[in-house]
Design a protein around this nucleic acid. Structure first.
Length: 474
RNA sequence: GGUCCCGUCGUCUAGUGGUUAGGAUAUCUGGUUCUCAUCCAGAAGAUCGCGGGUUCGAAUCCCGCCGGGAUCACCA
């Protein structure tokens, strides 16, 4: 039974980088009907951010990365919050002490800092074990507890990175338990993954250089290491640095709020560094579960390109039934639409669906259906066809339009007939006549096809707006 | 500085000794009786980081170099 976990620390919101490791872990579990576990790594109470645990949970849920075991849903391997597991770490720490593989750190933080600066000055990597005390005091909890490492060569396989190896020079005596009584990540995650029977550890690249140290500890603990997979970082839009909150890495919930579809987000994030070897570009969640494999995950970091995300999201939006899409749009309509009847909004949505990239674009794409936009003569003076006509000609054309449309029943079919008739009678090119009518009835930068737009607006509103436009032009 | 990882169109990528180096996106052009978008057609865009080697033949294998990244916390 495959068991994977996502083990974030509740220190802030979840951004795309975090989501991706969660997604990959979820996919690995789900494709074999395995178990996906959420574990909160809250061992640093200084960095803990109020409310972020709930935020993490909300983010996973909204993306559909449902976990089978976790702090709020329980499970047979709990507790799922590290701060509730302190006695478990104590138990394993005592085993190490008894085996002579852990000892109390007698130095003050200042003294250790001095060692570190010395090493830096000599351009050497800092190794605590070079200062390992001969006769450490008995550990009473007032000192950090350190791992007594056994420096050696480590070779291991990483599902993404392949075969890796390092020499003894990277192995050090890291801290297992801090003076506040909490374990470090380095210690806690190994104990927890073992106690929770985790089979695959999927984590970000920042941990790869620590893996040999973990391997060393696994040996001392006599625990068989799980399968490991290291996924590369997602890069920010500019530069080659890991995408971080500083570079505007957005909270995934911000994308949801902007009207990106969870399915689209999942597809996009999965294909950032993974593909199935075919030319398929977007994947449903089910396809991902079926086709995903760690060994096809890219070793190099991928750049987060919001433009591509917009395209993916647009393609999901276009593929949906308008009715289904409509159920997602409730929070996105412009204020002026609040009194508009549902069928009217639904019709409007049908017209803009194919140009919609994300839901919060709805107001700018639809506002003229719900309110009279201010007359903006720039739309005419900057139009490459319309600017050639003088005001009198424009007014004449609009008056002809008024007369013709007054006869129409405003069905799309009849509107098209009337508009075509107008075209012949006025002897104008569509680029002139239709542009003018479009502008005069919407005063918007862009709008759906003319007959369809007028059909939705209806006769009264259309004729009113043309009248108003004539007034404005005079 | 030590250690480890990475390096194919702007971007995401296909590619594991023989391909006109493929796709997608973005950009540009044309078409779809008007705009924006969709859709369709087309263009441009990659000396496969660089230099050696192995080979009849290398983006693919080997070596060196360069560039980028990660890490060297009582953070995870």
């Amino acid at each position: 039974m495959i068991r994977t976990r996502f083990a974030p620390s509740p220190t802030g919101y979840l951004h795309v980088g975090g989501i991706r490791t969660a997604l990959f872990a979820w996919l690995v579990a789900k494709q074999t009907k395995g178990i996906f576990v959420l574990r909160l790594e809250d061992t640093d109470k200084n960095r803990e951010v109020e409310g972020s645990a709930q935020h993490l949970i909300d983010s996973l849920n909204i993306l559909g990365l449902k976990y089978d075991e976790g702090p709020d849903v329980g499970g047979d391997f709990g507790p799922y919050k590290q701060s509730d597991r302190l006695d478990i770490y104590k138990k394993w720490a005592n085993k190490l002490i008894e085996d002579g593989r852990a000892y109390a750190d007698p130095y003050s933080t200042q003294e250790v800092q001095l060692f570190r600066e010395q090493a830096q000055k000599n351009k050497l990597p800092f190794l605590y074990r070079n200062h390992r005390p001969d006769k450490p005091p008995k550990w009473d909890g007032t000192q950090p507890l350190r791992f007594k490492s056994d420096p050696k060569v480590h070779k291991w396989h990483d599902e993404v990175m392949g075969d890796l190896s390092t020499g003894p020079e990277v192995i050090d005596d890291f801290i297992l338990i801090k003076t506040d009584g909490y374990p470090t990540y380095n210690f806690a995650h190994i104990v927890d993954d073992h106690e929770m029977a985790i089979t695959h550890i999927i984590r970000g690249q920042e941990f790869i250089s620590s893996v040999p140290n973990y391997l060393n500890l696994y040996e001392a603990l006599e625990i068989k290491p799980p399968i490991m997979a290291t996924v590369p970082h997602i890069l920010g839009a500019e530069g080659n640095k890991k995408l971080g909150k500083r570079d505007g890495a957005k909270d995934v919930l911000d994308y949801i709020r902007d009207g990106y579809l969870p399915e689209a987000l999942v597809s996009f994030i999965a294909t950032l560094g993974w593909n199935d070897g075919t030319e398929q570009e977007v994947f449903s969640r089910d396809e991902l579960v079926k086709k995903f494999s760690l060994d096809r995950v890219q070793k190099s970091g991928a750049r987060f390109d919001e433009q591509r995300l917009r395209w993916v999201n647009g393609s999901f939006i276009r593929a949906m039934d308008t009715d289904e899409l409509y159920t997602l749009t409730a929070d996105y309509w412009p204020k002026s639409a609040s009194d508009a009847p549902e069928p009217y909004k639904q019709q409007v949505l049908g017209q803009i669906q194919e140009r919609l990239k994300f839901l919060s674009e709805i107001p700018e794409l639809t506002n003229f259906f719900f309110e009279d936009l201010p007359v903006n003569l720039d739309l005419i003076s900057s139009h490459k066809q319309l600017k050639k006509l003088d005001k009198q000609e424009l007014v004449n054309l609009l008056e002809q339009t008024l007369a013709a449309l007054a006869e129409s029943d405003f069905s799309i079919k009849d509107l098209n007939e009337k508009l075509n008739g107008l075209l012949e009678k006025s002897n104008q090119k569509p680029a002139v006549l239709f542009s003018l009518i479009r502008v005069a009835t919407t005063w918007a930068q862009s709008s759906p096809a003319l007959a369809e737009s007028l059909n939705i607006l209806g006769k009264d509103l259309t004729l009113n707006r043309i009248n108003n436009s004539i007034e404005a032009l005079r």
